[in-house]
Write a protein that binds this DNA or RNA. Sequence first.
DNA 1: GCCGTTTTCGGCCCGACTGTTTTCAGTCG
Length: 594
Amino acid sequence: MNRIQKNNQLTKQNETIAGESLRVHNSAIADMFYEYADLLQIRNENAFKIRAYRNAARTITSLPGDIHESVENGEDLSQLPGIGKDLASKIAQIAKTGRFDELEKLRETMSPELSKLMQIEGLGGRRVGVLYRDLGIDSIEKLERAAKEHKIASLRGFGAKTEKAILENIEKSRRYVKGILLSEAQEIASLFTRYMRESEYCDTVVVAGSFRRRKETVRDLDILVTSSYPREVTDHFCNYPFAMKVSSRGPTRSSVALRNGFKVDLRVVPQESFGAALHYFTGSQAHNIAVRKRGGKRGLKISEYGVFREEKRVAGRTEQEVFNAVGLPYIEPELREDRGEIDAALERKLPKLVKRNDILGDLHTHTNYTDGVASIEQMVEAAKKRGYNYVAVTDHSKRIAMAHGLDESALRGQMERIDLLNEQVKPFTILKGIEVDILEDGTLDLPDSVLRELDVVVCSVHSKFSLSPQKQTERIIRAMDNPWFSIFAHPTGRLINKRPPMQYDVEKVCKAASQRGCFIEINSSPERLDANDLFCMTARTFGIPVVISSDAHRESDLDNIAFGLDMARRGWVEKGEVLNCLSVKSLKARLKRG
DNA sequence: GCCGTTTTCGGCCCGACTGTTTTCAGTCG
């Protein structure tokens, strides 16, 4: 669903849900600001005003807390970065009424779907403005028709090539909404970097961009190469056998589209610029701007080629040098979202992010007792190979009939089997667990009499994802009232690009979890990555430890833990905040609820 | 519209590539 549909839906909800207080979520407010900025841009208004709206939208998106609540508590929003008096009052208005009057007015005078056009690659505000004013184009459909009828090429600033590109990019926009999964990007990245390293002209080959920041979805890959032979490197890059077309080509930057439409960019720089280029191309854009501003204040100019005072290069060989030049310690790529990492760095309060080796076990795995493909023994072997000290077997409960979910007696059978195996695998520990369904009324799918005998009770929602936010909130909190509820697994239920997250009051649920001693899972399945970075940040503000779990259904799935780790790191999570960084003894103690 | 160790006005990151121009605007990251 795009922003406009979402905004419209929100307005509709406001009108139709009676008696139930609707909370305007942070993302809805941010989306309104983004759309407003788009419309201002199409009207050719002040570029800095437009940027201010986008900056504010970004700030709102990355807030761990609920802005609706901040408004209710009378907090001063103008203290937030990029939000002054004017925007603070607009946010308050939206939070209270669900409406942004200025946006509604613009939509009326312009066209409600106009900002959609700016999602098409190659179309910015200026061009969309021309298309709208000269040809009355205000939807993708009209744009496509006009391009096919060759009405666009004759417009000033356009041409035959642009017209053709528009058609291609409309097609592309239909295929990729938010980008591909991080795991898919990882496969492409490893093939492509291996290919680039085959060239004798490439010195260093690394992938930068949002891939290096480990975002949950990736729109394109940025490959950075250092070399003294940019022409040869570019030739090699453009000849990649799986490239469908070369979409741009220059001595330092080139870009190809793969057969599936995915874009890969190449940047070639000399070795002495490596650090500056890596920092620059890793982004995020907002982080770069913040760092460059700091540089500017110190009389430094920072570009992808280095840090310069006047004409003299003063840093740039490593990222460390770039940060140091502006008076900062090294900041990990996952933190570079301009979510406060620069201030934290200045105060020397950057988190010591959890690392792969800190994780001592996996607390969510399946076996062939239900829908997994490996036996308990095989999963244990696989876990040992990965250096773990323990693994929890958490098969499905009976409600998941199609996965042959376990009833009480089948579960007891599995528990006995685990007791036997535990004698054989010492000092390794197999924890007895279950992934029990949270039913619609908030009860759990198995009786307390058996849950109490388990080491780990992982609880999750697998049905009724679209209850009203209020009912969903009550359902989850009721489940947490059960004294054996320990870990809330894949807490939003979203499947990236397939199923939206459940709508409920995350703050209320986190508060409940923290009061009851429940934990939040980061599910590492590449299409879940749930809780994601922002959810982790919210959980942290409530002091809730997270659990990074693989949800493995086969031995190799255990390696997915790396993606969950990525989300944790993006959420500023430290080792001490991760349950499965504890030894088995401490873990068992923590799992027993008061 | 925001912001301030150039502080209430006048700035606002910076460079590359494409296509449409004939010196540059638009877009992108």
